[in-house]
């Protein structure tokens, strides 16, 4: 997403609220006021510039490596049979995903093949969703402004360049689209591994029907192939964007009412309702973070399972 162009010249709070909310959930890309963190020249038509969401994805990758991959590797190399502490908790999550999501959907035979993919999805999406609730950049901005005394207008300051844009990378349709593309190819690979290349494609449609039915059925099935990744893309990105917009809209009410009645008291009065509601939505967002990671993993398992166990 690109921050709204209308942010250039708004005068009133009412005019500022919309563009500000959009800029808080957007990526920093191709915008004069919110430039990329590192601007690079396109290579073979592909723009490799580092935007806010690219930076967040790198941070998420580091967090997943440090908190999941490294402790598990250490535990495996220790030769211990009983995990303890943090690894114990990871084991509980791994067992839940394997036994409640992977096994019932992909089946006993394929569970060890597909459980790693599903677990990678779960942990990556969980951390990418969760990082959106942690105000790292807001705290950095406060330190920069009030402790280091750097004005916001200083466009060459490193911290100022990373303050713009949203923190939730999974609210970006490109990110969820990339994750759904992995699911799309996983479905294909699962079907081909289970049935062979030719039979996998034959399994798309029911067998033994009159040939005119196939004229309608084959295009419907081919179009249906793209519906699954599209559902994953839209659902995750829309859910993550929606919660943040609701939160920001509620907090904006204080400024809107303050301006509407030309009184700080009106803004403070509204804050007595807006802040508890925003806190409640933030609490709900914690659940959303978990549920969305879980639903993406679950749907991926179902789609892979449908390619393996074909029922018509």
């Amino acid at each position: 997403m690109i921050p709204s162009q209308t942010i250039e010249g708004p005068k009133t709070v009412m005019e500022k609220v919309g563009p500000n909310i959009i800029s808080h959930v957007s990526n920093t890309y191709n915008h004069p006021k919110y430039p990329e963190i590192i601007k690079l020249e396109p290579i073979m038509g592909i723009d490799f510039s580092v935007t806010k969401h690219v930076l967040i994805l790198w941070i998420v990758a580091i967090i997943v490596s440090v908190s999941i991959i490294i402790p598990i590797r250490k535990y495996l190399s220790s030769g211990s049979l009983v995990p303890s502490g943090w690894v114990n908790m990871i084991e509980a999550i791994v067992k839940l995903i394997r036994d409640s999501i992977a096994k019932p959907n992909v089946g006993e035979k394929w569970v060890m093949t597909w459980a790693p993919v599903l677990l990678t999805f779960f942990f990556f999406i969980l951390f990418a969703n969760g990082i959106g609730l942690v105000p790292i950049f807001d705290v950095l901005g406060l330190i920069n402004r009030f402790l280091l005394g750097v004005p916001y207008s200083d466009k060459y300051n490193t911290i100022n360049t990373i303050l713009n844009g949203g923190v939730t990378a999974t609210a970006n349709f490109n990110v969820t689209g990339a994750l759904a593309t992995i699911t799309f190819f996983s479905i294909m690979i699962a079907g081909i591994m289970a049935h062979g290349f030719v039979k996998h494609w034959k399994n798309l449609v029911p067998h033994g029907l009159a040939w005119p039915v196939y004229i309608i059925l084959i295009p419907i099935e081919v179009m249906g192939l793209f519906v699954k990744p599209f559902a994953l893309t839209m659902r995750l990105a829309a859910n993550m964007t929606g919660g943040h917009i609701a939160l920001l809209a509620l907090l904006s009410l204080m400024a809107i009412f303050g301006e509407l009645f030309s009184s700080a008291a009106a803004g403070i009065g509204v804050s007595l309702v807006a802040i508890p509601m925003a806190a409640a939505i933030a609490g709900l967002e914690v659940i959303v973070v978990l549920v969305q990671a879980y639903v993406f993993t679950l749907l991926t398992a179902v789609f892979i399972g449908m390619a393996i166990h074909v029922h018509h």
Binding site: D99, S100, I101, M223, F226, K228, A231, L298, V302, F303
Partner: peptide, 26 residues
């Protein structure tokens, strides 16, 4: 029973998301 609910939720979610996603996509 929590595990059972989780494992049965997948196909139900798949049915609903397939319908809405298809309409939106097209």
């Amino acid at each position: 029973s929590f595990q059972k609910v989780l494992s049965q939720a997948g196909p139900a979610a798949n049915a609903s998301y397939s319908l809405i996603a298809s309409i939106l996509l097209f």
